[in-house]
């Protein structure tokens, strides 16, 4: 079986191998183009001069002229600006809460001294495999008075069981002697978690934080059923009304748009493109971090979702 002879290591790459490599690379680069062209097309549309928007075709990737008027119009819209604030608030508070609650639970569940530990583990599996009906969840949220409150959206998926399990596996690998030494010194559970476990779990927390963060930023559905006041809507919901449902009145009805001289010449599709770009931007900003933490973790550990 083992026939590897180091001296016989490939000195040259055969022509056929090179041929296939070129084919594969070309095909993969085509895939990249299919991902990128629609994105750059929207960026081009959003940045083009209003008078030249009609020149931007579906496969155009560079703006015709350069103008920020679409973004200025969006920024002048109170509903849009408010939705960005709401999204930022939901994302920051939600992610902080996610990390706090998930890490406290993961710590407790990985302690052998936890009472009813087996019972709680079964509970977690139940949560993982049984999905409550949408209607019953809705009625419970209504009953506890969270309707039209950002908290209904923030608390949804406060603990993602899959992430909880990933964090538990991570905590389990922390040497128990470190924890015991601190406990002999009289440290409380919270102190041990804060001063010993969490600092050691930083890469895992960063990964989960990024995933929770992207989840909150992208969430729109719970917001659509739990929030009734448009001034509480997150950006994704405004985006859905404006772009997916093509409901221009919701965004423009206030009349602020038409206070602009250029407004008469603005194209809805360019405005819609700008809204999409704004919604993608934060994801692009944290994307290098995601690649750094998660992609590496996956390559090493084989964790999926």
């Amino acid at each position: 079986m083992v026939r590897s002879i180091s001296s016989a290591k490939k000195v040259r790459t055969p022509a056929s191998e090179l041929f296939w490599r070129c084919c594969f690379t070309a095909l993969l680069l085509c895939t990249c183009a299919i991902v990128l062209v629609p994105l750059f097309n929207l960026l081009a549309l959003s940045l083009s001069e209003p008078s030249r928007v009609s020149e931007v075709r579906g496969l155009t990737v560079l703006p015709k002229g350069l103008s920020l008027v679409n973004y200025r119009v969006l920024m002048a819209n109170p509903l849009f600006m408010r939705s960005i604030l709401n999204s930022v608030y939901i994302t920051l508070v939600g992610t902080a809460l996610n990390l706090l609650v998930t890490s406290m639970a993961a710590f407790a569940l990985t302690r052998p001294k936890l009472p009813f530990r087996r019972f709680f583990m079964v509970l977690i599996i139940i949560v993982m495999i049984l999905e409550p009906a949408l209607v019953t969840e809705y009625l419970v949220v209504k009953k506890i008075g969270l309707m039209n409150s950002l908290w209904a959206v923030i608390l949804y998926k406060a603990v993602n069981v899959y992430y909880l399990i990933i964090l538990m596996r991570y905590f389990e690998e922390i040497p128990p002697s470190l924890v015991e030494a601190a406990q002999v010194d009289g440290a409380s559970n919270m102190t041990v978690l804060k001063n010993i476990v969490l600092p050691l779990a930083k890469p895992a927390l960063a990964t989960l934080g990024l995933f929770y963060g992207v989840f909150h930023w992208n969430e729109y559905f719970r917001a659509s059923i739990y929030l009734t006041d448009p001034m509480k809507y997150p950006l994704q919901l405004i985006l859905r009304q404006f772009v997916v449902l093509d409901d221009t009145a919701s965004l423009i009805g206030s009349g602020t748009l038409f206070s602009y001289d250029e407004a008469a010449r603005l194209s809805y599709s360019a405005l819609q493109a700008s809204t999409i770009v704004v919604a993608i931007l934060p994801v692009l900003i944290v994307y290098p971090l995601i690649l750094k933490y998660y992609a590496r973790g996956v390559m090493e550990g084989g964790v999926k979702e």
């Binding site: 407790a108 709680f120 409550p132």
Partner: peptide, 30 residues
């Protein structure tokens, strides 16, 4: 070492509350 540490339940409580409100009660409500 065998003695249970009941204080750990405090750390678990917020997650349990969440599971109760967003999962278990709605499941029972079905």
């Amino acid at each position: 070492a065998k003695r249970k540490d009941w204080a750990l339940l405090v750390l678990l409580a917020p997650a349990l509350m969440y599971f109760l409100v967003y999962h278990l009660i709605p499941i029972a409500g079905m």
